[in-house]
Design a protein around this nucleic acid. Sequence first.
DNA 1: CCGTATCGGTTGCATATGCAACAGTTGTGT
DNA 2: ACACAACTGTTGCATATGCAACCGATACGG
Lengths: 142, 142
Amino acid sequence: MPKIMKSLNSISRCQSTYRSVKLSADGICACHHSFILIISRHPGYSQEDITREICLNKSTVARTLNHLESVGYITRIPDSDDKRRILVYPTEKMLLILPKVRAVSKDWNDRITEGISDEEMQVFHSVLSRMEQRAKEIIGEL
Amino acid sequence: MPKIMKSLNSISRCQSTYRSVKLSADGICACHHSFILIISRHPGYSQEDITREICLNKSTVARTLNHLESVGYITRIPDSDDKRRILVYPTEKMLLILPKVRAVSKDWNDRITEGISDEEMQVFHSVLSRMEQRAKEIIGEL
DNA sequence: CCGTATCGGTTGCATATGCAACAGTTGTGT
DNA sequence: ACACAACTGTTGCATATGCAACCGATACGG
């Protein structure tokens, strides 16, 4: 039986280390990386939207956003239609570092996919996205 | 650009949640799961072997093993050939819960791979293991 | 309407994790 | 044989993360 999850967890941790090393000089730790990419891609997402997208506990999301707000990377604006919701927007400061964050992300992707053919990657993506879908469904049913 | 790492991280976290829910009644938290599988598969591994296999920081490994030892799941025996090394062995108690841990692991794998053909899985495994290899190489070069 | 359930977010607490500094052991070069 | 580098594991500290309890806002059923 091949160890899918072992490989998957290992890659995940290695990437986290890679991000830390490449971006620590900019005051961005590994855990901020995903937030920056998601928030810049989806300005106006609520905290819950981010929680769902990033698959982290909502308390972790709230606290990470506290930090990102305090260092000036995001603005949080209460939703006027539903006063429970808080909408998250990137600031200019985030947009300034975005290219570098994206570059680190791309470098990592390029390097781990070295020597893998287009056909293989296509199958890989297809399988991976179905797995992600299933994983979220399974958690939703618990 | 497809988001490999986002999917991969999401699946990783979902699995962690799944493990917690399925095994919390037995006093096993998600992070022990991998340790139990690895130690039972490789009795006599040193802490460093485990660190490399599991891709976690060595301090985390040392502390998790402290815990597993204190609850009676492992025994640690200093290596007589190299007194720096500590060899880790499963106890009877670990072997008793092993089937259940393996079952949870298998259930998860079966469920996330539902509807994926053998050919697709073969390509997926091939690509994933190469990515894992590359990821570890990249970290090694840092 | 009113009472209740649900939802989105926050907080207290416990645990997990990483990094850097450290200690003891082994290997290496002279 | 000795000095020094590399290796293995441990510890102090800071941060990240999850869970459960909570709060205010909204939806829903009578």
